[in-house]
């Protein structure tokens, strides 16, 4: 057991910590707590901040809006549970929009972790609109090797997926009798957190002229803009903000819209931290320069005193 006396809180000898030192050394746990509070509070007490619709989200919406009842659309769940928070709102909103317009959906996934997500979302949204598997929509499941899958679907979807996810032969699915290749499908929508949107553009868009729209994670969105600018992608959604814009356009409130207040508050806080960090950096640099000048001045004075003696 130590018997050292603790320093008094009113110890006048303790030096005061300068502001720049405090700003440059904020405990990371303080930042974590601040971000957690800024994110959690708007979820509990919504602020209903306004959301402006972007051109790319409007284009994504227009692509589905122009389809007619009975048209076919391929929908690809190209993500796994780690990205559900960002991409589920896009998938749900897209399927709601499609089922509301009586568009027939051919769903699949290029990821082994995708079927669980696809089954849950398809089941929930199809139940909302009273759609049945086989005639209104089908879920073909996961197929290994995405590039071969994308290319072969241009020739025959039934050959690429001999059975659906539930082992029903594709030849017995009424929906696949009407649409068996890209040329018979009006639109392809992929929701992805990887470069698969680019590969759909290369294989389905480039080789077969399929119209494509994509929902992407925020990180991928930067890489997707050039494909939208050239028209290789007809529309796209970027991150939770894109999902919120799309939910606003179709007039349903989902996790995207509910999360935007929290997103805005967290961004505001991070911007504040970046500004404070930069102020701390500038103040610290000034302090160090002043210290160096004072040391240089002291050394010169000492040299001068030495010469006088």
């Amino acid at each position: 057991m130590t018997t050292e006396a603790r320093p008094s809180k009113t110890d006048a000898a303790r030096p005061r910590r300068p502001l720049h030192d405090w700003l440059a050394n904020v405990d990371r746990r303080v930042i974590f707590i601040a971000v957690a509070v800024a994110t959690a509070l708007p979820l509990i007490f919504p602020l209903n901040l306004p959301i402006k619709t972007s051109r790319e989200a409007r284009a994504y919406y227009d692509e589905i809006e122009r389809l007619q009842p009975g048209d076919e659309m391929i929908f690809v769940f190209d993500y796994e549970p780690d990205l559900m928070a960002e991409l589920d709102p896009m998938s749900i909103a897209t399927l709601r929009h499609a089922f509301r317009k009586d568009i027939q959906v051919i769903a699949l996934t290029d990821y082994p972790g995708g079927p669980g997500i696809a089954e849950r979302i398809l089941g929930e949204v199809a139940a909302e609109y009273g759609k049945t598997h086989g005639t209104d929509y089908v879920f073909l499941g996961y197929n290994p090797d995405y590039s071969a899958t994308m290319l072969r679907m241009g020739e025959s979807i039934q050959a690429t997926f001999p059975t659906d996810h539930y082992h029903t032969p594709s030849s017995e699915l009424p929906l696949l009798q009407e649409a068996d290749r890209y040329a018979e499908v009006e639109l392809l929508a992929t929701v992805t957190g990887s470069a698969l949107a680019e590969y759909w553009v290369i294989f389905a868009g480039g080789s077969y002229g399929q119209r494509i729209i994509a929902g992407n994670t925020a990180i991928q969105a930067v890489l997707i803009y050039p494909y939208f600018q050239t028209g290789q992608l007809s529309g796209f959604l970027g991150g939770l903000k894109g999902a919120a814009e799309y939910e606003k356009l179709i007039g349903t409130e989902g996790a995207g819209l509910r999360g935007m207040d929290a997103q805005s508050m967290a961004h505001l806080l991070i911007v504040c931290f970046i500004i404070l960090g930069n102020i701390g950096f500038v103040l610290q640099r000034r302090y160090q320069r002043r210290l160096e000048r004072e040391q240089d001045g002291g050394a010169k004075r000492e040299q001068g005193d030495g010469v006088k003696r």
């Binding site: 971000v35 994110t39 928070a85 925020a218 990180i219 939770l240 996790a255 999360g259 997103q263 967290a266």
Partner: peptide, 19 residues
């Protein structure tokens, strides 16, 4: 965009915990 993506993941977990 990366910050937005990471914050979205946090929002997803908080929506699960609080809603």
């Amino acid at each position: 965009y990366t910050v937005m993506g990471r914050v979205s993941l946090l929002i997803g977990r908080f929506q699960f915990l609080f809603q």
